[in-house]
Design a protein around this nucleic acid. Structure first.
Lengths: 236, 236
DNA sequence: GTCGTTGCGTGCGCTAGCGAACGTAATGAC
DNA sequence: GTCATTACGTTCGCTAGCGCACGCAACGAC
């Protein structure tokens, strides 16, 4: 169940700021369009901008040996990309890949740091977001290790559903395989299982969520656990 | 290859501070003995103290369904326990389990926050430590998923060797199984492999590192990768 | 309509790790 | 010396996911 914050037609972190801080921050942002499959940065790259997604959403991946990789985070309109800047480090630890195209607010790195320095509310908000991100990272590590692919896939679809704000989104099995760190065939098999149970439908890269409830039942507890952590520290 | 910082007979984060900050911080610490197998805190617990290990080292675990669990971090004299306090959140995201007994510096949470506020050097140091911790978290997630148990075990032994600062330490297969998120038998098999190759020797809970070089060869690249991240952001 | 590309389905042999169970030797308490 | 406990060894059947390979239908470009 997405919290109110996520339902807002704006970035949740920004929306939660007091009016003055919010307006000052927004004044320094530019509105840009994220295009599906864009790679915003690679691990080790210098971070030149932070992103506050509004419509789009971004996967954080740790690449591994060229072809395979594993998703370790997902940034939608509840979060931001480039949070490590607030730790004073402008080197991206992850690959950032646009999973869902859409509008995003973008801000120059130096300007962001100035903004952060002048707004205690922003500091507090991002501190909490960083904490939640760390908790999710650990959760994902355990989930990836312990849970069956079908449950992990269901969880992934739910998390994406929350961020895509539409029942249908573009996503091939190949891409899902990269997120989940498995083979394409593995995804085909797991997705086939979910489709047979009428929880989703897909056709040539378009996935439709048919039954959220069913998906939640099929997903591992990690989805709920993540939601709880989020609501506790960033909810209203 | 442990960096100089780790070799020092003090906590590395504290040692790296300017003299005045260091002395002020140490004045607020008490020296306590960590006992093997102590559980310092459970996930969700309130954080009352931060710890800067000197001799001992501490595992960070995400529990799962009672019996199994997975290690997502390791804190030795290169790091600290309770870092999330600097994000303004006094709730532990992990279980903290003492893996190696020994001396540790401990500081009251509120005092730590005051200390942090007055020392920009400490802030910078801990910011960088937090960044490295996040990177390690992601690395561990990928490692746990992709690499074979024997390689993961080798990596774990190396990381522990770095922090134990002795070639022998107490550690049963059962405990290792909890760290690595696998069965006890799995550890027995993997450890048997390493022993047959004369890289380690063990007997009733005492593990001896015989050939570090060999272990490094047997470990997955994650060990080196972690070292590199550490050296880059916290090295000298 | 033709053709190359993309996205998905299927099948085959294989291995790592699982769960459960049992065995055994070392150790320590008494 | 006795006996329970601890720590490790081994076996058996099982399954999820792997790597590889081939097939096939939908789609877009022309």
């Amino acid at each position: 169940m997405p919290s109110k914050r996520r339902a807002a037609n704006a970035n949740g972190l920004i929306a939660a700021l007091p009016r003055k801080d919010r307006e000052h921050l927004l004044a320094g942002c530019e509105r840009i369009e994220l295009a599906f499959a864009d790679v915003i940065c690679e691990p080790g790259d210098r971070i030149r901008h932070v992103y506050f997604p509004v419509d789009g959403f971004i996967s954080l991946l740790t690449p591994r040996d060229g072809c395979t990789s594993l998703e370790v985070g997902l940034v939608g309109n509840e979060g931001m990309l480039g949070i490590t800047l607030m730790l004073g480090i402008d080197v991206s630890p992850f690959r950032a890949l646009v999973q869902g195209g859409g509008v995003s607010m973008r801000m120059d790195a130096a300007l962001f740091l100035r903004e952060l320095a002048r707004s205690p509310a922003l500091q507090s908000e991002l501190n909490r977001y960083l904490y939640v991100s760390m908790a999710q990272l650990a959760q994902t590590a355990a989930c990836t290790h312990f849970h069956l692919l079908e449950a992990r896939l269901a969880r992934w679809l739910l998390m994406t559903h929350d961020r895509a704000r539409a029942d249908e989104f573009h996503l091939t099995h190949e891409l899902l395989a990269h997120m989940l760190g498995v083979r394409r065939v593995g995804v085909t098999k797991a997705a086939g299982g979910l489709q047979r149970r009428k929880l989703i439908r897909y056709h040539r890269g378009n996935i439709t969520i048919l039954a959220r409830n069913g998906l939640e039942a099929a997903a591992c507890g990690c989805y709920r656990a993540s939601q709880n952590v989020y609501d506790r520290f960033l909810g209203e």
